[in-house]
Computed example of a mutant assay.
Amino acid sequence: MHPRFLLALAPLMLTPMAHAVDCDNASDQATMNQCASQQHAAADKELNALYQQITARLKANPDSKKLLVGAQRSWIAFRDAECKFAVSGVEGGSVYPLVYGNCITQLTKARVETFKTYLKCQEGDLGCPVPGI
Rank of each mutant, 00 (worst) to 15 (best):
H2G: 06
H2E: 03
P3K: 11
P3D: 05
P3F: 10
L6F: 09
L7R: 15
A8Y: 05
L9F: 09
A10D: 10
P11R: 04
L14Q: 09
T15S: 03
T15F: 04
P16V: 07
P16A: 10
P16K: 08
M17T: 13
A18L: 08
H19V: 15
C23S: 02
N25Y: 05
N25D: 03
N25T: 08
S27L: 07
S27K: 04
S27R: 07
Q29Y: 09
A30K: 06
T31P: 01
T31K: 03
M32Q: 02
Q34D: 06
C35L: 04
A36W: 01
A36K: 03
Q38N: 07
Q38S: 08
Q39W: 04
A42C: 02
A43M: 05
D44T: 08
L47H: 03
N48Y: 01
L50F: 01
Y51P: 00
Q53F: 12
T55G: 05
A56V: 10
A56N: 11
K59N: 10
K59S: 10
K59V: 02
K59Q: 10
N61D: 07
S64G: 12
S64T: 02
S64A: 13
K65V: 01
L68D: 00
G70W: 12
Q72N: 12
R73S: 09
S74Y: 15
I76T: 11
A77C: 10
F78K: 15
R79E: 00
R79Y: 00
D80E: 06
D80C: 01
C83W: 05
K84E: 07
F85Q: 12
A86N: 15
S88L: 15
S88C: 15
G89L: 14
V90F: 02
V90C: 06
E91V: 11
G93S: 12
S94H: 15
V95C: 13
V95D: 08
V95P: 11
V99Q: 15
I104L: 14
I104V: 13
T105G: 04
T105V: 11
Q106C: 06
L107C: 01
L107D: 00
T108F: 00
K109S: 10
R111H: 08
E113H: 04
E113T: 06
T114L: 06
F115I: 09
F115T: 04
K116C: 09
T117C: 06
T117N: 09
Y118P: 06
L119R: 15
L119P: 12
L119G: 13
K120N: 12
K120T: 14
C121R: 09
Q122A: 14
Q122L: 11
E123D: 14
G124H: 12
G124A: 13
D125T: 09
G127T: 11
C128T: 07
P129L: 13
V130I: 12
G132T: 11
